[in-house]
Design a protein around this nucleic acid. Structure first.
Lengths: 348, 348
DNA sequence: CTGAAAGCGCTAACAT
DNA sequence: ATGTTAGCGCTTTCAG
């Protein structure tokens, strides 16, 4: 219990089984060119099991020059938004026999930070990285290790060879059409920070729906990944005259803040102000009123990103990809309705 | 950009500087028994810098038989509750030159799961582990690697030598006294799962406050770490007659669910039902009404746990510790009041 | 069918 | 004041 573990090595298994480490290694790794007598095979497997042998990943990593681990770096790991994405990543890494480490992108530029240590010490074979608004393109290029296979998730960067993103445009369009269908004409958008690429895509989806309906896209303000940003953004919208009667919020946490702002401003949601958010999770059930959302395939995004990364680690291939499947899905709860009415029973 | 990185080794630095790897290693690691001419020292440092040398952590780990990393395993990494604890852990690990990996405790018993792979492959030198309600004592002993230094955080286990917990009793007592001070006499507790040790401690704090006030501790039900559990628990309380007029919730996410239940039950918080939660975070500002909470020193818990673990890795020492500092702190928002009144302006 | 040997990059004891 | 050497545990040619 105390002190470092006494672990069993390949050599011990080998000597116990009366063979050499070489055979055991090749057997356990399923070397197809290896031919052993069935009895020896059994003996080796039995003793390996009996001794509880597990390969030492460190020695393995040194020899193979690969660690068998990748990292997932997102703006804030404790954000409920990343629950589904993390699940997708874990599923795909597990399937490939890899290990996924998680960390925060908030200190990408700090030399002692998680990301920097991880890549400098080569503790992973590759990285899934979601950009934050706090680091501009130039800083990003300077700070990110371009020698390590890196797939941008849910974000892109000009001239970056590998990325996988959501169909943000379709998601924002669906959300906007929901409000339009309910009869709203003054519709606002709490979008993302200008430096992020999904901001543009979601804006495009929003404004396409608006244009198609012959509506004007004013009431567009900037939000972010946290509730506070949505609160401030909504306050800004409430200050405009005339103010919108419905708002599309690009991120569910920002939407939580937007609801708070509406409440503080004395507005009833949805009777006086409809709110619909992109991304769906358990939190949406517990807001007041429960949030109508558009669910995007974050699980699939995570899983696909891992596949791209592992493919890249293996072959060096580049990819740009959008996850279209499953398509954005409307989840109607109680934060949207026609003006003056209670919660809508379904999409308009 | 494509393919694995071409990295510079100690040997390359050495030959470039006209010395051997041994000297470079000892110099860079600050070996006090090493004596080098100032000029050689400068030359070595200069070439190391010029070549951009970073030690290969894998080779280092193999040689030293320590990885320089620890793991933090909590019930759900994406839970906002762990934000502060994670910060504390990161601060302390960074300070010690260690790296902290984060993972979920939900699949502790799955052989291909994060925890199992991590410890079986010895990718970390030690583990900070928070128990979940889903694994009983026997399973825990079977599943957890007792050869690896492991500190239980925010949880304990009979005969487990190392743990650090919060002053749960004082926290629950403070919360309960707040409601008592507001004049409530029928006070409920949404506690934790029976298998977890903090459940007992928080119950003790609750019942002590109740006893001191001459009140009876009925209305005690079981909640958990998620909003859903708090929702179900509150529904249970609402079904009892007479029902409580105030509830202490042992976990802020459960409290979010409890608020939802009250709302669905048609009750106004706090006029008809006061709610106070243990743990404080950004979410409390955004519930309706904003949650009154008791803030516990989760940051300090995380930091202290790391110190204990590193001490244990170094020396094998055992510890049981409670983090008393800073003491539980009442954060009054709007979910508590005297019966029939609006939000209370301060503690009673 | 199986063994011997080299080497991944690093450190630490021991030589010089 | 610096060099030599051995070895951490594993994989992988190359020999037998």
């Amino acid at each position: 219990m105390a002190g470092p573990a006494r672990r069993v090595s390949l050599a011990q298994v080998a000597s116990q089984a009366g063979v050499t480490a070489s055979v055991v290694s090749r057997l356990l790794n399923g070397d197809p060119t290896l031919h052993v007598r069935p009895e020896t095979r059994q003996r080796i497997l039995a003793t390996a099991k009996a001794l509880g042998y597990t390969p030492n990943s460190v020695a393995r990593a040194l020899r193979l020059a690969r660690t068998g681990a990748i990292a997932l770096i997102v703006p804030d790991v404790t954000s409920p938004i990343y629950l589904d994405m993390r699940r997708g990543v874990e599923y795909a890494t597990k399937r490939a026999g890899y290990l996924a480490l998680m960390g925060n992108a908030d200190e990408l530029e700090v030399p002692e930070g998680f990301y920097a240590k991880l890549v400098a010490e080569r503790r992973v074979d590759g990285v899934l990285l979601q950009r934050t608004e706090y680091i501009d393109d130039a800083t990003f290029w300077r700070v990110v290790d371009t020698d390590l296979p890196t797939v941008l998730v849910n974000s892109r960067l000009a001239r970056w060879p590998r990325s996988v993103v959501l169909d943000d445009e379709a998601g924002a369009e669906l959300a906007t059409r929901h409000l339009i269908g309910l009869g709203h004409t003054r519709i606002g958008l709490i979008g993302g920070p200008p430096v992020l690429d999904w901001t543009t895509r979601r804006y495009r989806g929003f404004s396409r729906a608006m244009r198609d309906a012959g509506l004007h896209s004013r009431w567009v303000v900037t939000g972010g990944h946290e509730a506070d940003t949505g609160l401030a953004a909504m306050q800004q919208l409430l200050g405009s005259t005339p103010r919108p009667t419905g708002v599309v919020v690009a991120n569910i946490l920002a939407a939580v803040g937007a609801l708070t702002a509406a409440r503080r401003g004395g507005l009833t949601v949805p009777a006086e102000m409809s709110v619909i958010a992109l991304h769906d999770n358990w939190l949406a059930e517990h807001t007041e009123p429960p949030l109508t959302t558009v669910k995007l395939p974050l699980y699939q995004l995570g899983a696909r990103a891992v596949e791209l990364l592992l493919d890249c680690i293996g072959s060096g291939r580049s990819h740009q990809e959008i996850v279209y499947d499953p398509p954005p899905q409307l989840v109607v709860r109680a934060s949207t309705s026609t003006l003056g009415a209670g919660p809508s029973p379904g999409p308009g």
